[in-house]
């Protein structure tokens, strides 16, 4: 079974030393990867290559998309209608598989995204989800007590605002297009990017307010 390779010094996993207390699931994962490489199912560098691709994604990419939508109403319409094409305009690669959907917050409407069945999240744009998004508390409570959940994050949504919780249970991955903060008229696009928080892209937060110049 090709088991007589030298497993001594050939396997170098940079960064693994920090994970000294590897639990059994982690050890089994490492074992599976090594075996798949040895059997030629995957290439020796493929996992590392994909790790680099994933590491390059971050909520900043979502923030760039949002800032462009705030600046350019025509782009915003395209983003809501066909997110894939709109993202391609900004140079983000079209990822196969799950489809991105964008929901817009307005004066009267606030969206909050959850995945109650697992932890679906627009990772292809924003990178991996935060821990709380995957927590059992968030997954169970967000659909029945969204206002309480948002309050825990410090976001109070007015009584007059309709809250729409989106449970991304199937093949779409939802990102919130938050409201542009007041007092940002005339700001440059790159300064707007800095206001868009990750939490505002999920709906548990609002974008930061611009710093007040005194």
């Amino acid at each position: 079974m090709g088991a007589d390779h030298d497993h001594g010094g050939d396997h170098h996993h940079p960064g693994l030393a920090e994970d000294l207390s590897l639990g059994e699931p982690a050890r089994r994962l490492m074992a599976m990867e090594e075996l798949l490489v040895e059997k030629g199912v995957i290439g020796a560098d493929e996992v590392r290559r994909v790790m680099d691709v994933i590491a390059a994604r971050s909520p900043v990419d979502g923030a760039r998309v949002v800032a462009r939508a705030w600046m350019d109403p025509a782009f915003k319409l395209r983003l809501l209608e066909d997110p894939r094409a709109a993202l391609a305009e900004l140079g983000y690669p079209v990822v196969s598989g799950s489809k991105l959907a964008v929901v817009e917050n307005t004066e009267n409407l606030h969206h909050l995204v959850v995945c109650t069945l697992c932890s679906c999240y627009p990772t292809s744009l924003l990178g991996p989800p935060p821990d709380w998004y995957k927590s059992f508390a968030y997954r169970s409570r967000a659909v029945v007590d969204p206002r309480g959940v948002m309050r825990e994050f410090g976001l109070e949504v007015g009584e007059a605002v309709e809250v729409r919780v989106v449970d991304s249970a199937a093949d779409l991955r939802y990102m919130v297009l938050p409201r542009r903060p007041e007092g940002t008229e005339g700001m440059a696009e790159e300064d707007l990017v800095a206001l868009v928080t990750r939490d505002s892209l999920v709906g548990v937060g609002a974008p930061n307010q611009p710093a007040v110049n005194s």
Partner: peptide, 22 residues
């Protein structure tokens, strides 16, 4: 939300739950 959860739901009358269903 009100019809989904009844009195358990403490939010606004207009609040909604949206979910993709096959």
């Amino acid at each position: 939300m009100q019809s989904l959860w009844g009195p358990r739901y403490g939010g606004g009358e207009e609040d909604k739950l949206l979910i993709d269903i096959y």
